[in-house]
Design a protein around this nucleic acid. Structure first.
Length: 213
DNA sequence: CTCCCGATAT
DNA sequence: ATATCAGGAG
């Protein structure tokens, strides 16, 4: 089956499964979403939400992150793991936001990606969901696993390359929805450990049924 | 490629 | 015990 044929079916079925495909992360602004996505690395959304519920009461603006010792911030985000890296990233990110962007999240994919701790995945997710801008496709561990299993790509490790290939296949106005939906699909059906191939709408032609990639 | 790192599923 | 979870930097 050709890539164009596959992607058409995938989009069609995902639209049935997840017509809205909302994020599970809770946030009230682009800034809160940026913080939440940075915290979500190697961590479930549920735990991020538990942490941010209190965190966003205490830290309401980028400046607030600069007003406490980094050790205090580390303690406030500890349950999300990688807390030293994340605390430093948040701090430097907020510093740059204040110094170069007037405390606002830039709406440009190349500028937002220059923020410390913000890669393509975080950038695409924030711009897409907070601003409705389809400027990239968030290729996280779920998206990567699903497109590899379906062989929508042959690329194994380079997520930037996978993103380029997907952007060429998916209509731009669907980019944000597509990554959100694929993430939900990867979480609930095409899981890493015990994929629910019995519930999968692609099982008839999936090259990787019941095996772990 | 390695490191960062806690919580949960298997 | 081990793999994995909404990654990014050096």
């Amino acid at each position: 089956m050709k890539q164009e044929e596959k992607i058409k079916i995938v989009i069609q079925e995902l639209e049935k499964l997840y017509p809205e495909a909302p994020l599970a992360l809770r946030y009230r602004s682009a800034f809160e979403l940026l913080v939440a996505v940075i915290l979500s690395a190697q961590c479930t959304d549920e735990r991020v939400n538990r942490v941010t519920e209190k965190l966003f009461e205490k830290y309401r603006s980028p400046q607030d992150f600069l007003n406490v010792p980094v050790e205090e911030l580390e303690e406030d985000i500890r349950p999300t793991g990688f807390y030293r890296n994340k605390a430093r990233a948040l701090r430097e990110c907020c510093h740059k936001l204040m110094r170069e962007f007037g405390g606002e999240i830039p709406r440009d994919i190349n500028q937002i990606t220059k923020l410390p701790g913000v890669g393509r995945k975080t950038a695409a997710m924030v711009l897409g969901n907070a601003y409705g801008l389809n400027l990239g496709i968030a290729v996280d561990t779920h998206v990567r696993r699903v497109v590899q299993r379906l062989e929508l790509t042959r690329e194994k490790k380079n997520v930037d390359k996978i993103e380029q290939e997907l952007m060429a296949l998916v209509p731009q106005e669907k980019w944000t929805w597509f990554s959100n939906a694929l993430i939900l699909f990867g979480r609930h059906i095409c899981q890493a450990r015990k994929p629910k191939c019995g519930e999968c709408p692609f099982r008839e032609w999936c090259p990787s049924p019941d095996k772990v990639v």
